[in-house]
Nucleic acid binder design. Structure first.
Length: 759
DNA sequence: CCATACGCTGGTCCT
DNA sequence: CAGCGTATGG
């Protein structure tokens, strides 16, 4: 029979088949963990195209960029070119695209900036000074989290005023209103505005609303359980008038409560779309029965959840293992040992994931991996773009696309130092706020303040002005290079002449290359539009470092693990106050959300799940092995699980060698291709550095301080190479080196064969 | 008035 | 560790 079916309809169970082929009308797909929800979504898109739907009329929204790019990839695999025209993106980037076209109705320009939390803080800080509010007693962050809280739920100051009274609210509202004014004046949106402004745009401008409603005939939503009120409002409008909306979600995997995710949106959906078809995908294809039984038992303890029976069949698999160690370090050592053992017995590194609740936990585990030279990667996203030098340069660029961007101005106007100090800035701000103009405007012809400050600030304005001219004539990459030079940033760093400053320079180099490789979705875009597009993508994605995931073990937070799966999963630091996190304990429903988080973590595992904890406490996050904190108790989530599926405390671990082998063979080809591409790219860099002098002056590398990106090293087997990346600190840091001929190797720093090349 | 050095403190999760 | 506030020196 399958021969007569088109490819995208093959190999589906009856429920999945229905979810794929009934394309019209509203549909609620309740999809348990591992029940093939991505498969269903991608194939549903394929089905739509198969039916002759215009790809441009399809909008698919996901929550994370990773999920979006993965889905896009899979759709293209299924349907080829047409897949490229489908909008598959996160809520935030879809909204950003809409606003870049139509925001002018709301008094912003198309060149608006996107503010991250750092920018937000900078603005609020200034506001508090202006309003004479004590920053110590009321930290900017507390205002911001309240503002975000309400915005996430689609409320504005007026609504909040109606609901609450009291002086606290009065101050909040004062700050909030000024905050909104400042953003409007700065032509900037925060993350919530990206969604919120679209909702307002559609509410107040019917002709715009209609345009987009007509454009999107079909709306699909992934991870629906994580939508907040605001996002739901947006979806409702977009799906009209056809009401062809399909949402896929699992109430047990709702883990974004802190961002306003509201599970009751699932109930609202059934109420608002009474015609909706409800389909349940309850068969799990991912995990072994033992893993599933433990996960089910865990999440069953939650009160407010929809009845769902997740089942699977086949060999029960190995039991879920629990391991207790004396302290964080021992725990990490054990995990690293176990991982190494598994790898020796046939598992690939990329089959293994270590999942934790908080980012800070990664460090101990990183160190343990480094000691054994286990290649690993951290899925954390932010890293590169969070670097100070990178963010500084981005702020310069933002001022070129948006001269009103005050947060960017404030961040970099004195980096490197140009004689603009706090007094001069204060005068400037005062003048700007009385004139109601952006800082940069006022800076050009400042009338207040001392002559010296005026001169310094005026010079800065001129600098930006001259760079702005360039922004229309240069490609983004050329422009970035120019900015780095003209602003004196390069000079500042090269004058420092430390390993660190050289590393920063290398990062900026990387930033240029990154800009060069950015492709604007619209091939006709000019340089300026390409720059703006690149800045958007940087702001919205945080973008992962370009390391292929082949050949490495993965470390990540639970939130980052959502939607992924691994044959072997370690869930670590399962202790009270960590998991559930201390901060969740006094929140309403906090512990239930933590339990869902644990459920998500557990259900990432396909073959083997290992849960570890220790009795001393979490690692002391930074630097120091800072000793025991509070004695820790095992997480409450480890109790009341089915005994027959568990085994305890034995450090030797038996992997399913045969199954892992089979998996490895299949995956290897894919990974090899990715790795190949990576190496190709590296080759271009390495080609420059092939010459290898006869008499090398070499000295032994003793600590990571001597090594940084760009430094040349020598290895007896591979010759001279350039350091591309350094992971971790101290004598056991892991170093990725590009050797001549395009080979990139990961070397352990302590490896005595690795030596520093002296010039 | 500005730049720099240094000590203190805080702290989920993510777009 | 980083970002902030304070103390000190140009």
């Amino acid at each position: 029979m399958s021969e007569e079916l088109p490819e995208h309809q093959q190999f589906l169970n009856p429920e999945q088949f229905k979810a794929v082929t009934q394309t019209d009308g509203a549909m609620l797909i309740l999809a348990g963990a591992g029940s093939g929800k991505t498969r269903v979504l991608t194939r549903r898109i394929a089905q739509l195209l198969y039916n002759g739907t215009d790809p441009k009329a399809i909008l698919a929204v996901t929550f994370t960029n990773k999920a979006a790019s993965e889905m896009k990839e899979r759709v293209e695999e299924l349907v080829g070119e047409a897949g490229k025209k489908v909008w598959v993106s996160t809520f935030h980037s879809s909204c950003c695209r809409i606003l870049r076209q139509d925001i002018e109705h709301l008094g912003y320009t198309q060149r608006f900036s996107i503010y991250d939390d750092d920018d937000q803080k900078r603005i609020v800080r200034g506001l508090l000074d202006e309003l004479n509010i004590d920053r110590k007693a009321h930290p900017p962050k507390s205002f911001l989290s309240q503002i975000d809280f309400h915005k996430n739920r689609g409320r504005g100051p007026d609504e909040v005023l109606k609901e609450h009274r009291g002086h606290d609210v009065q101050t909040l509202l004062r700050v909030w209103r000024r905050y909104e004014e400042s953003l409007l004046a700065a032509d900037a949106l925060d993350f919530n505005d990206l969604i919120g402004k679209v909702v307002i745009l559609f509410r107040d401008h019917p002709e715009v609303r209609q345009k987009w409603q007509e454009r999107f005939e079909y709306v699909l939503v992934d991870e629906y359980q994580d939508t907040n009120r605001l996002q739901y409002a947006l979806l409702r409008v977009l799906a009209e008038p056809q009401r062809n909306i399909a949402v896929v979600g699992d109430d047990d995997q709702s883990i974004y409560g802190f961002r306003g995710a509201d599970i009751t949106n699932i109930l609202s959906f059934e109420k608002d779309y009474t015609e909706a078809n409800v389909i349940r995908l309850e068969r799990n294809y991912r995990s072994t029965p033992n893993i599933l039984a433990v996960s089910n038992a865990l999440v069953a303890k939650n009160k407010g959840r929809m009845e769902k029976r997740l089942w699977t069949e086949g060999d029960p698999g190995s039991k879920v293992r629990m391991v207790r160690r004396a302290n964080a370090r021992d725990e990490a050592e054990w995990v690293a040992d176990a991982a190494q053992l598994m790898q020796r017995r046939g598992a690939e590194w990329e089959d293994i994931a270590v999942i934790y609740r908080t980012n800070a936990t990664s460090r101990v585990f990183e160190q343990a991996m480094q000691r054994r030279a286990i290649p690993y990667r951290i899925v954390g996203g932010r890293k590169f773009y969070a670097r100070r030098e990178v963010r500084d340069i981005l702020c310069y660029l933002r001022q070129l696309t948006n001269p009103a961007d005050d947060a960017a101005f404030l961040r970099v106007c004195n980096v490197p130092t140009r004689g603009i100090g706090s007094k001069g800035l204060a005068d400037l701000r005062k003048e700007a706020s009385t004139r109601g103009e952006p800082l940069l405007n006022v800076a050009k012809g400042m009338t207040s303040g001392s002559p010296r400050a005026r001169k310094a600030i005026g010079a800065y304005a001129e600098l930006i002005e001259s760079l702005t001219k360039w922004s229309h004539e240069l490609t983004p990459a050329e422009l970035v290079a120019r900015v780095i030079k003209e602003t004196g940033y390069q000079g500042m760093l090269s004058a420092e002449k430390t390993r660190e400053s050289e590393g920063r320079l290398e990062n900026l180099n990387q930033l240029c290359m990154d800009a060069a490789s950015f492709e604007h979705p619209d091939p006709h875009a000019n340089d300026f539009e390409t720059l703006a597009g690149w800045l958007d993508s940087v702001a919205l994605t945080g973008q992962d470092e370009q390391i292929p995931d082949g050949g490495m073990l993965t470390l990540m937070t639970v939130h980052n693990s959502k939607g992924l799966e691994y044959p072997i999963v370690f869930v670590v630091h399962m202790m009270e106050k960590q998991f559930p996190h201390a901060r969740s304990l006094d929140e309403d429903g906090g512990v239930e959300e933590e339990r869902r988080l644990a459920y998500v973590a557990f259900t990432r595992a396909k073959l083997q799940l290992i849960i570890t904890y220790n009795v001393i406490g979490p690692s002391n996050d930074y630097g120091g092995r800072g000793g025991p904190t509070d004695p820790a108790e095992p997480s409450r989530f480890l109790f009341g699980l089915p005994d027959e599926c568990l085994e305890g405390d034995l450090p030797d671990v038996e992997p399913h060698a045969a199954q892992l082998k089979a998996l490895a063979v299949r995956k290897k080809t894919i990974h090899d291709q990715k790795l190949q591409a990576f190496l190709e790219r590296q080759k271009e860099n390495a080609a420059v550095e092939v010459e290898e002098p006869d008499d090398l002056r070499l000295i032994e590398v003793e600590s990571s301080d001597q090594i940084s990106v760009g430094v040349r090293v020598h290895h007896p087997r591979f010759g001279v190479g350039t350091v591309r990346m350094v992971r971790g600190r101290g004598p056991i840091a892991q170093v990725f080196v590009a050797f001549a001929g395009g080979r990139t190797k990961s070397v352990r720093l302590g490896d005595p064969s690795l030596q520093l090349v002296m010039d």
